[in-house]
């Protein structure tokens, strides 16, 4: 079935292409310029002259081994913080959401309402007292809360909690209560009801929540920059990029290589889970 192209069809296709070029142009520029040296880039940023694999190799080596950036350590920090936060958020969030939905009492409504109301609080209002509280509590208890993994994961559990509970309660409400009643009559304890019956059913909303939280935690800059600092040992990728750029103001070959390294993990993930990521982000937006 071959359809003839109408003039309108050609125009629409052209529009598609022009927008796609505009959207992808910055990425193309990054990819081209990591193969070039700083002088070539300054001479003509939009050109393929002087591209070579050895230059890419040089750029990569000097960026990865740079002490301000230290890619692998930053990458591992970001990965550990994101993954542990996501797993704990899904686990604790599901547990809390289940208790809140299945207990129709004043306190459960109150907790739910507090969670919902807190979603409107911008990070800027809590960030300054948060840092000082964490510093004081850490000193008092002897647990280092700033510049440490437990501290930042703890903070992400707190900030991600509201949205996680909100989306999961919305789903648990649709799970028939008779299921739990039947299990309860058969002598099943509440914790087994949750882990054996409810938790397996929670897979779709947990995917949504994980994508929403994951995108935000992976790309977040302000919270880790305040909690971990730019000179600390523990740095996430966005903080490392910022620290790196701060130390190499006009070295565009190195800055773009660092940017590329920071982008690549997300792009690879997107190629593999494109449907889930786009669906999850849209789902989350529509529900909240």
């Amino acid at each position: 079935m071959v359809k003839k192209l109408t003039p309108l069809g050609i125009i629409i296709r052209l529009i598609f292409l022009v927008i796609a070029i505009y959207v992808l142009f910055p990425f193309a520029l990054v990819v081209i310029n990591v193969f070039r040296s700083a002088n070539d880039i300054v001479a003509n940023p939009v050109s393929v002259s002087g591209m070579s694999l050895t230059k890419l190799h040089n750029n990569l080596v000097s960026v990865i081994n740079n002490s301000n950036f230290s890619f692998w350590s930053a990458f591992m920090t970001s990965a550990v913080v994101t993954i542990v936060s996501l797993v704990l958020l899904a686990l604790f969030g599901g547990m809390a959401a289940w208790v809140i939905t299945r207990n129709k009492t004043n306190w459960s409504t109150f907790i739910y309402m507090t969670f919902i109301a807190s979603m409107i609080i911008p990070f800027q209002v809590v960030m300054l007292p948060l840092i000082s509280t964490f510093r004081d509590v850490g000193k008092f208890l002897g647990i280092s809360m700033l510049q440490s993994f437990p501290g930042i994961i703890f903070a992400y559990l707190g900030f991600g909690g509201a949205m996680t509970v909100f989306i999961l309660t919305g789903f648990i409400k649709t799970v028939p209560f008779e299921l739990e009643e039947a299990a309860s009559i058969d002598g099943c304890s509440p914790e087994r009801i949750y882990f054996n019956i409810i938790l397996p059913l929670l897979k779709p909303p947990v995917v949504t929540v994980t994508i929403l939280n994951g995108m935000w935690i992976w790309n977040d800059y302000l919270l880790p920059s305040l909690m971990l600092g730019h000179n600390g040992k523990v740095k996430t990728l966005p903080v490392a990029v910022q620290a790196f750029v701060g130390s190499y103001v006009k070295q565009w070959d190195l800055i773009l290589t660092a940017a590329l390294l920071a982008i690549i993990p997300m792009i690879i993930l997107f190629l593999f889970a494109q449907k889930q990521i786009m669906g999850g982000l849209v789902d989350g937006a529509i529900k909240s």
Partner: peptide, 29 residues
């Protein structure tokens, strides 16, 4: 009281983090 105990244990972790990172700093702020 088993159900009540489970409720407390299930709610505690998230609520604790939430209170320490959002509610208390908000009030302090």
């Amino acid at each position: 009281h088993h159900k009540a105990i489970i409720n407390v244990i299930f709610l505690f972790p998230l609520l604790f983090c939430f209170a320490v990172t959002v509610i208390i700093p908000f009030g302090l702020g």
